[in-house]
Design a protein around this nucleic acid. Structure first.
Lengths: 329, 329
DNA sequence: TTGTATGCGTTATCAG
DNA sequence: CTGATAACGCATACAA
């Protein structure tokens, strides 16, 4: 069933049908005839042919480091909400934390000719910067500051600084930190730096051996909590770069009957669903993940629509945060 | 940069380049010349034109009720793993638990001409059955038994029966149940029925007012736990249709200093990441979500490749489960 | 307002 | 093995 058959059935030209479907530059009479035929046949124009002709795919590529994460799925939910309402479809590219795959997907998207790309940023290597700079498709980076593209990110540094301040105010002084690779600027570097600077400001020196590091999973928190308690029996709080890591630390503490927060306090980042369920509930930081997705999608739409405008100053938007004062500190 | 330019530069015909890219039915000499030009120019054939010509989009539509869920994202991770390895891309369609949107997306996918559809099933209305029966695209249903399509699902009934048996064996006798709508056959009906039958077998009658119901979120568990304790002060265990619901119940119990499992035991389904972190850890059921995604994707691939074979007996595969005996019971 | 004709970039057919 | 050519289904410039 194609546009020509419809045209024949309605007694008009294919161009008329096309116009009916698009601009609507057509007389009432023919319009009615076409409508009737389309209703009867259930005809739908071939997306593929439209795409070849117009160069627009109505497809948006979304690159994410993993799918199974509270924060990431919230961002994607926000993105999805805005873009599907505008008739776009999302192609999900899951890199499984393999940074090289990001570049592969970028290539794939170039070929698929997506109309825009949303990139949930993680690490930034030189290779990445180069690859992303070479992209001509409208691109918005989420969760990381980027100088080469429009981006929306969280105030990771400020959040970490405030959270540390809060922990200190609750009379924890020997604080260990479990982070992730600093190649992840937002989660790895900024959160660690906020912690260090807040400690510094309080006149507390943090020795290097109070800083631990690992992956994004629970076992990072679990195994490093074990190390921390072995290395530093006097530790009275652990700040973890994510709630998931904090969950691992809590698991270790629970299993070894170390009471939270009396013996050791724990704090995380992300305000995951779970944090409020735990007993004691987890002190954490709320970031506006869904809003990040929503705003990112709007920004992308704007860039797609003004693609012709040669002047394209990329925007950078920093989102706020909120400390969730629960019982684990 | 298109195939004709490449052909001209390599001194061959467009057809030769096309063959080079596909069957490779070409002489060594020309092949080398073409390879050289392609390497130099970085030419990539237009996916859109290929798609128009061949009718294959290399796109798979994935319909899910929500993205922000442990179990669903695990299934999608499995699907993604298999299909991206085969050069397919996933279009994610998030219905936000709006069953009508499933039908809309089905329509959209028809238009986008996806090569296959994965449907994480939820409820089955007559309208749904009709819509899904009318689909000619290869389709695999995951998480629900389906008579009209190939499907992979979990043994929800058996799991619930076993779990209830286990709870009973731990000397809980006054057990309340918090479920979800029975329109969701797998999670709503089967799990409830397994519970009821196991109770029956133990000679315990379950009065209707021990059966509660709500949505898929934590607040269902929270508010119904409250009701349960008001209505039935003698209750000594609550079985919840999902871990998320169980988390809500636990939250209520913790907040009201009702000890788990001494006063009230709690059990869930899904073996979510969180379940092992809680203290006491949550007794639950492990389902093979990722495996479900992997097997589902393989099944879909098979159906896509044998699309011509007129005989297409749809398969139904029931997956196993495993009771996770933790401390909350 | 309408219809004709052309081309988007590729692949399949068919004759060499 | 190779190349010319005709589709795939649509949207648009242009002529009417």
């Amino acid at each position: 069933m194609n546009i020509r058959e419809i045209a024949k059935m309605a007694g008009v030209s294919p161009a008329a049908v096309s116009r009916y479907l698009n601009n609507g530059y057509i007389s009432r009479e023919k319009s009615d005839a076409i409508k009737k035929v389309i209703d009867e046949t259930g005809y739908m124009p071939s997306h593929q042919a439209q795409t070849l002709r117009t160069g627009k795919t109505k497809l948006i590529g979304v690159i994410i480091p993993r799918i199974n994460s509270d924060s990431i799925s919230s961002v994607v939910a926000g993105v999805s909400e805005v873009l599907t309402a505008e008739g776009y479809q999302l192609i999900l590219a899951n890199t499984d934390n393999d940074a090289d795959k990001e570049i592969d997907y970028l290539e794939t998207f170039k070929q698929t000719n997506v109309d825009g790309i949303i990139h949930l940023g993680t690490i930034k290597s030189a290779k990445h910067k180069k690859a992303f700079k070479a992209v001509t498709t409208p691109l918005v980076v989420l969760g990381q500051e980027s100088e080469s593209a429009s981006c929306i990110f969280h105030d990771d540094y400020g959040a970490s600084f405030s959270l540390t301040d809060y922990v200190l105010s609750k009379n924890h002084k020997h604080i260990a930190y479990i982070g992730v690779t600093e190649k992840d600027i937002a989660v790895g570097y900024m959160r660690k730096q906020g912690f260090l600077d807040a400690m510094e400001k309080a006149g507390l020196h943090v020795p290097k051996n109070m800083l631990y590091q690992g992956n994004f999973r629970m076992d990072n928190g679990y195994s490093n909590a074990e190390k921390i308690l072995k290395d530093h029996p006097d530790v009275d709080a652990i700040i973890c770069a994510t709630d998931t890591i904090a969950l691992g630390a809590i698991k270790y503490l629970n299993e070894h009957h170390i009471s939270i927060p009396d013996q050791v306090g724990v704090a995380g980042f992300g305000d995951s669903k779970t944090s409020s369920v735990l007993s004691p509930s987890l002190t954490t930081v709320h970031f506006y993940y869904k809003e990040c997705g929503i705003e990112g999608a709007k920004l992308l739409l704007e860039r797609i629509q003004n693609e012709n405008s040669s002047a394209r100053p990329s925007q950078a938007i920093k989102l706020d945060y909120r400390i969730i004062e629960n019982q684990s500190i």
